[in-house]
Simulated scan of single mutants.
Amino acid sequence: MPKPLRTSRRTWIAAWVVLCAAGLAATVGLNASNAPDPQTERPVSAECAEYVADIERQLAEAQRMSERDGVLVFSRVQAGTDDDCGEVLRDRLRDDR
């Protein structure tokens, strides 16, 4: 039966260093490629901005007054608001989570 090849500690350490460096480089590359693109702020109508500010104020007040978890409900339709208010409001509420 042939004897197995003996490798030195330096060879094993060098192999681990190379593998770790390759793993770190791959991780950095993947994290950089998965980074979300920064979204530019779209102009929002004054009515929509006022509506969103009012909802944020109500949320802050409800959070301050509530000692336990609760549900705050808003109507879906607001007279005089544009369609972009829904998207802006969803984006704001997602950021607060």
Rank of each mutant, 00 (worst) to 15 (best):
M1H: 08
M1L: 06
P2A: 11
K3W: 07
P4N: 07
P4F: 03
P4Q: 10
R6W: 01
R6D: 06
R6A: 13
T7P: 02
T7W: 10
R9D: 07
W12A: 15
W12F: 05
I13W: 00
A15M: 11
W16C: 10
V17K: 15
V18S: 13
L19N: 01
L19V: 11
C20W: 04
G23Q: 03
G23K: 03
G23C: 11
G23Y: 04
L24W: 05
A25M: 03
A25T: 08
A26I: 06
A26K: 00
A26C: 09
A26W: 11
V28M: 06
V28G: 14
G29E: 02
L30Y: 12
N31W: 14
N31F: 08
S33A: 10
N34M: 08
A35R: 15
A35G: 02
P36T: 02
P36S: 07
P36G: 08
Q39W: 01
T40A: 13
T40N: 08
E41L: 12
E41W: 05
E41F: 06
R42P: 00
R42T: 14
V44T: 11
V44S: 08
S45T: 12
S45F: 02
S45M: 00
A46Q: 10
E47R: 10
E47M: 07
E47K: 11
C48I: 09
C48K: 01
C48V: 14
A49Y: 04
A49P: 00
A49H: 04
E50R: 14
Y51R: 12
A53K: 07
D54R: 13
D54V: 12
D54L: 13
I55E: 03
I55N: 05
R57I: 01
R57Q: 15
Q58I: 07
A60D: 15
A60L: 12
A62M: 03
A62G: 10
Q63A: 11
R64W: 09
R64M: 06
M65I: 04
M65Q: 15
S66F: 00
S66P: 02
E67R: 09
E67V: 00
R68G: 09
R68L: 03
G70Y: 06
V71K: 09
V71A: 04
L72H: 03
F74N: 03
S75E: 15
R76K: 09
A79E: 13
A79M: 05
G80Y: 00
G80Q: 03
T81F: 04
T81V: 14
T81Y: 11
D82T: 04
D82I: 00
D82L: 05
D83S: 04
D83M: 03
C85F: 10
C85D: 10
C85T: 11
E87S: 06
E87M: 01
E87I: 05
V88S: 05
L89C: 10
L89H: 07
L89N: 00
R90H: 13
R90P: 05
R90M: 09
R90C: 05
R90Q: 13
R92D: 07
L93W: 11
L93P: 10
R94I: 05
D95H: 12
D95F: 09
D96T: 09
R97G: 02
R97E: 11
R97I: 15
R97A: 04
